[in-house]
C-alpha cells in the first residue's frame, strides 16, 4: 500500500554565478523517485546542497518539479496553491529545523496548535478542542504549557509544539526536515521517541530528512543516500550503515565520529562536495572517488537493484539486471 509516489523528480533553479554573468540553470534534484508507505519512515541523508530538502519540498508540492510527477493516494498532486492542493495540505504536514522561526511569537501554544484547524476549516467548537488536546498529548506537551508563548518554552518544548501543530489535522504524511538538529542530545532523544510513538499510533508515513546518520538509522525503515541531486544508494538502514556499497556511502559512514573504537580505518575524502552549478560529468562523485575507473567520468550510473535487495548507482557494484533475473 503506497501513500505517496514520487516519480523521476527533477528541479532546476536559475542562478547567476556573478552579478553580471548570464543566467544559468542549476539542477538541485536530478531524477529522484521514492515511495512513502503508511506507518513507515524513509530517511533521506546527504550533505548540504545534495538536494534532500528540495526533495522534501517537491514531495509536499511546496514547489513544482521541473519534470516528473508526485502522486498522493493514487491521484496526481494538484497544482501548488490551488484549492484542491490546499485541501490536500491538511493531510501532509511538515516539521522544520528551527522551531522558533516556525511559531508566531504572539500566539500561545494552544492557539498555535489550534490554528491549522482554522486554516483548513476542519471540525468546529468542542471537536476542535478535543483535536487540539489530542495533538498536544501525542506530541508530549502537558496542558500546563497551553497558555505559554514560544519564548517561554525550552527548545525541546518548542519543537514538540511544532509537532503538535503538524499533528492536529491528523495528517497521513509527515515530512520532517532536520527536526531535532537544533536540540541538545538529551532533548533530541525525547523528541525522537515522541515522533516514533506518534507514527506508530497513527500509522503516519514519514519522510525524515537529516544529515545525522545515527538519527536516521534510529528512526528509519528505509534509507536513501543523496549526492548532488541523485539517490546513490537506497535500502534497509542496517544494510546501508553496516555494509555500505556505494563509495560515497562508505566514506560518509566512516566519517561519522563514534565513541566506540572503529574497527576499520576512516576513509577521508579529498576535496569538497561539488557545486551543483558545476556538475562533474558522468558519475558526479568520480572526482572524489578512490575506486573510479574510466567509465565513471563518462557515463552516469543509474540506480539499479543489487542481489541483496537494495539499489545502488555505481558502475562498480554488480547489479541484478532483468535479463539475468529471467
Amino acid at each position: 500500500m503506497t501513500l505517496l509516489h514520487a516519480i523521476n523528480l527533477t528541479r532546476d533553479y536559475a542562478t547567476r554565478a556573478g552579478l553580471f554573468s548570464r543566467l544559468q540553470s542549476v539542477r538541485a534534484v536530478d531524477g529522484v523517485s521514492l515511495t512513502l508507505t503508511p506507518g513507515r519512515t524513509l530517511g533521506l541523508v546527504g550533505e548540504s546542497g545534495c538536494g534532500k530538502s528540495t526533495t522534501g519540498r517537491l514531495v509536499l508540492g511546496l514547489e513544482p518539479p521541473s519534470s516528473g510527477e508526485v502522486r498522493f493516494a493514487d491521484a496526481a498532486m494538484p497544482k501548488p496553491g490551488s484549492k484542491q492542493w490546499r485541501q490536500l495540505r491538511a493531510r501532509m504536514q511538515m516539521v522544520f529545523q528551527d522551531p522558533l522561526g516556525a511559531l508566531d511569537r504572539r500566539m500561545t501554544v494552544a492557539q498555535l496548535v489550534h490554528e491549522p484547524l482554522v486554516i483548513h476549516g476542519m471540525a468546529a467548537g468542542p471537536e476542535r478542542t478535543l483535536l487540539v488536546a489530542a495533538a498536544m498529548d501525542a506530541a508530549g506537551i502537558g496542558p500546563d504549557l497551553a497558555p505559554r508563548h514560544p519564548h517561554e518554552l525550552s527548545g525541546g518544548q518548542r519543537q514538540r509544539a511544532v509537532i503538535a501543530r503538524a499533528l492536529v489535522t491528523n495528517p497521513d504524511l509527515l515530512v520532517c526536515d532536520e527536526p531535532v538538529s537544533a536540540l541538545d542530545v538529551s532533548i533530541q532523544a525525547q523528541v525522537i521517541n515522541r515522533l516514533v510513538d506518534v507514527q506508530q499510533e497513527r500509522g503516519i508515513a514519514m519522510l525524515f530528512i537529516s544529515h545525522d546518520l545515527k538519527l536516521v538509522r534510529q528512526i528509519s525503515h528505509e534509507v536513501a543516500v543523496m549526492y548532488l541531486g541523485r539517490i546513490v544508494e537506497q535500502g534497509a538502514p542496517d544494510a546501508i550503515f553496516t555494509d555500505p556499497l556505494h563509495p560515497y556511502t562508505k566514506a560518509l559512514v566512516s566519517a561519522i565520529p563514534s565513541i566506540t573504537r572503529r574497527s576499520t580505518p576512516r576513509i577521508v575524502l579529498d576535496g569538497d562536495p561539488p557545486n551543483p552549478a558545476n556538475r562533474p560529468s558522468g558519475c558526479a562523485f568520480h572526482p572524489r572517488c578512490r575506486e573510479a575507473v574510466a567509465s565513471c567520468r563518462v557515463d552516469t550510473p543509474a540506480l539499479r537493484p543489487t542481489a541483496d535487495g537494495r539499489s545502488v548507482a555505481c558502475h562498480l557494484v554488480p547489479s541484478v539486471t532483468v535479463s539475468e533475473a529471467a
Partner: peptide
C-alpha cells in the same frame, strides 16, 4: 558536513 568534518579532525 560529515566528510569535511572528517578532514578537519584528521
Amino acid at each position: 558536513d560529515a566528510t569535511i568534518q572528517a578532514q578537519i579532525l584528521e
